[in-house]
């Protein structure tokens, strides 16, 4: 039976009048990869800042690795590693110095520190960049170095705040591989992301968070299954009528409207139901313009639970993200 390593109950946080986190409760099991999925401004970073003791807890309780964040912050700090959302590497220090600095901050003994640096440089494939200033590293290398730094002290829990923001698809996949291999060595991973595919591919369990509240929690697979077996996308000459007609079918469990058409959630293999749907629509005199069949994605899960597309509000594009990464 898995034991929880992070336990959060009724956590709430406000900035003045703004309620960023509205009483959330969840727990993360030892050894799992757990994701907070939600748009920017959903309260993910606030939650991670409280769990990592950077923000004082205002309401509720939280414990990490068995230590209460309110009463034993120093113990929590010793048990965790953090990779922040923005790049937080000193541009004018070398990769080796970054890790050495971090190890000394956590009072790692000299010998162990030096050995660990070599181990991690190898893990993230930066051995050749040991004496390179971080300003000369590519985005992916910087992220890898930050992950190495987060792992320096062999933390029980590694917090990753938007770990692949602003990286190209190929680099992202490699980052995921690193994260998975770190997890396989026994580190529990807590990550926040606003990328559906990241939550989907990387995590054992996902909590969807929106407007400071957890809307759904479960394995990515289970969440997707809650939407039924398949999603059928239709654009027709009369979407309203078509939607009403389909809703009466026992196989159709839900309709989601879209600008030019709609999705019908079906509880059976869509390939079998689709011909029947097309027949029924034709009989009703509705002309089908476009048809598409797909398995539900995390995007669909998000829309299903929040009633809106994550990109509608707040979700920034990677290209506009990195105004803050340079130094001086």
């Amino acid at each position: 039976m898995a034991e929880p390593i992070i336990v959060v109950s009724n956590l709430a946080h406000r900035y003045g009048d703004f309620e960023a986190v509205k009483g959330i409760s969840f727990s993360v099991d030892r050894g799992e990869i757990f994701s907070f999925l939600g748009p920017n401004g959903a309260g993910k970073s606030t939650a991670i800042n409280i769990l990592t003791t950077l923000l004082h807890i205002q309401q509720g309780s939280a414990s990490v690795a068995g230590f209460d964040v309110a009463t034993e912050p120093a113990k929590v700090r010793e048990s965790i590693g953090i990779v922040f959302q923005d790049v937080t590497l000193d541009r004018d220090m070398t990769c080796w110095e970054i890790l050495e600095f971090h190890g000394s901050l956590y009072r790692m003994p000299h010998k162990e520190r030096r050995a660990r640096i070599e181990e991690l440089l190898e893990l993230v494939e930066l051995e050749g960049k040991r004496n390179t200033l971080t300003k000369h590293l590519s985005g992916g290398m910087k992220r890898r170095l930050e992950i190495a730094r987060g792992l320096m002290t062999r933390p029980k829990v590694l917090f990753l705040d938007e770990p692949t923001i602003g990286l190209d698809p190929q680099t992202r996949r490699r980052m995921w591989d690193y994260i998975k291999s770190v997890n396989e060595e026994g580190t529990t991973i807590f990550l926040t992301t606003h990328y559906m595919d990241e939550a989907d591919q990387l995590s054992n369990r996902v909590s969807i968070i929106d407007h400071g509240q957890i809307i759904a929690t479960g394995a990515a697979w289970d969440l997707k299954n809650m939407l039924g077996e398949d999603l059928i996308y239709l654009e027709t000459s009369d979407n309203d009528a078509a939607g009403k007609l389909l809703q009466k079918m026992p196989e159709v469990t839900g309709i989601q409207e879209r600008p030019h058409g709609f999705y019908a959630q079906v509880n059976q293999d869509g390939t079998h139901i689709l011909p029947k749907i097309m027949d029924d629509l034709r009989i009703a005199g509705i002309r089908i313009q476009t048809v598409n069949l797909k398995k539900p994605s995390m995007d669909d899960v998000f829309v299903h639970f929040t009633g809106r597309d994550m990109r509608d509000d707040g979700a920034e594009h990677p290209s506009s993200m990195h105004a803050k990464t340079g130094r001086r």
Partner: peptide
Amino acid sequence: NWGLLREVMASPL
């Protein structure tokens, strides 16, 4: 301002 202090503030130092 550049976020570099967070590493230190989040450490047991």
